[in-house]
């Protein structure tokens, strides 16, 4: 169907009435049910804004591959999962597994191409820093679960991942 098929529909020029409003409310309600906004997206967005306020300019990595639901807060808590972030200049892969302490995770990461760069895991309550080795590997142990974003420090432009739920 083309937009021109809408010409000459009876009632098209009537002002918005109560039944229109009721119909629109149902449309909104159904959209929300069929394609719900992911759990925690508002919180992740707010933290992403906080982080954006800290860095003047960053290069954003995008999620390349992630098992369904793993970046959302309803992700299974204690399973090992791997998330890959990518950009033209850098790929970051992280494997998450339960930490030694309760409610923590261990982050095993790889940078490709391999480079000894500082990696900062940013959380609402503070940063965890480490440095990738010659093979581009880095480990962050006993990171409390919750919102987090990785920042890789480069000479000119820091590279960040979207906010995910550890």
């Amino acid at each position: 169907m083309d937009m021109t098929d809408l010409d000459g529909v009876v009632g098209a020029d009537d002002p918005l009435d109560a039944s229109d409003v009721a119909l629109l409310e149902r449309v909104a309600e159904l959209s929300g049910r069929v394609d719900p906004v992911p759990e925690g997206l508002v919180e992740r967005s707010r933290f992403a804004m906080t982080l954006a306020g800290l860095e003047s300019e960053v290069m954003e990595l995008m999620v390349l591959e992630a098992p369904a639901g793993t970046v959302r807060s309803d992700a299974p808590p204690l399973e090992t999962r791997t998330i890959t972030f990518t950009h033209e200049r850098l790929t970051v892969m992280i494997a998450l597994s339960p930490g030694d302490e309760p409610r923590t995770v261990r982050v095993d990461g790889w940078l490709a191409p391999a480079e000894t760069l500082t990696v900062v895991l940013r959380r609402p309550d503070g940063d965890h820093r480490t440095t990738a080795d010659d093979d581009g590997r880095f480990v962050l142990e006993n990171v409390p679960r919750g919102l987090a974003s990785l920042l890789v420090e480069q000479d000119d432009l820091p590279i960040t991942t979207p906010v995910i739920e550890l």
């Binding site: 992911p38 997206l41 707010r46 992403a48 999620v63």
Partner: peptide, 25 residues
Amino acid sequence: WHTVRAQGVPREVADDVVQQTWAAL
């Protein structure tokens, strides 16, 4: 969210795009 999804973006990627939009603001 629905604006991004209406363009045919998969859910996981749409999550990033919405975050990125707020960060860009």
